[in-house]
Amino acid sequence: MSRSQALSSFIESAPPGELSDVTKAIKNILGEESVLSELEPAFQKHNEEQLSLVKLPGSNEDVIISPYNSLGDGRYYDTENQSSFAYDHASLGGTASDVQSYVVESNHEDLVKGLLKTLRSHGTEHYPKYHIGVYPTSDDLQIALLTVSSKYSPANYWNGRWRSSYLYSPATSTLTGTIAVDVHYYEDGNVRLLTNKNVNTKVSGSGAADVVKAIALAEKAYQENLNKAFGGLAEGAFKSLRRQLPITRQKIEWEKISGYRLGQDIGGGRR
């Protein structure tokens, strides 16, 4: 793997809320302060994929960075503020500047407005801390609906992020997208949960409420399945790897271990 591929893979694998720690470690391993500009393409990919947030100058509201609101050349737009801004990926933690008025032109202007409102009320009901974005695609055939919810608790050695990204096609009433969960726990270890679920569903109706209802159903079903999967792994794969106690339900008598005969006294065939 080349140097730039290796560095990009580190940035791509950075857990939620730990990009600056990862970058600091990379700088120190290389002994180079100047590596930041080299990492810029990887930062851009990471920021857009992870739906990173940035505060616009003079505002307290965070807005999302994503492939769907990118205008190219490091500029992005925000539908609600009706503005565009420059984003510096190479400066760690990312800063926005050069805010200009920007009104997105779309045949679905009213639907976008409606979706912003209903997706926000859905978010308020299910995400303690979240940000949303709604953007018509550049060909104006689809509308992207994004939700990102992150919670960082580095003092307790864990961080997590939930991301939902959907594309809604008004002409065909279809909703496609992905839900992804990323959880990192790192107290005396390093444990990572990474999930990815494709969503592909038909929306009955054409109003904003119908689209968000389909999203709500898909997300609820997914979270219930995810909770079941934890139980399934604990009872299934985990148990079959290692028993809590031997089949005798007793700890080993180590002084008598040479008296144990494999396959006979202790049950269970050899594999």
Binding site: T124, E125, Y127, G160, Q223, N227, F230, F238
Partner: peptide, 20 residues
Amino acid sequence: VYFGKAKDVVGDLRSIPPLS
């Protein structure tokens, strides 16, 4: 950690019952 903590964090990110 694998089945308790990870699940709890997911529950902290998103709530199945409406928060209201």
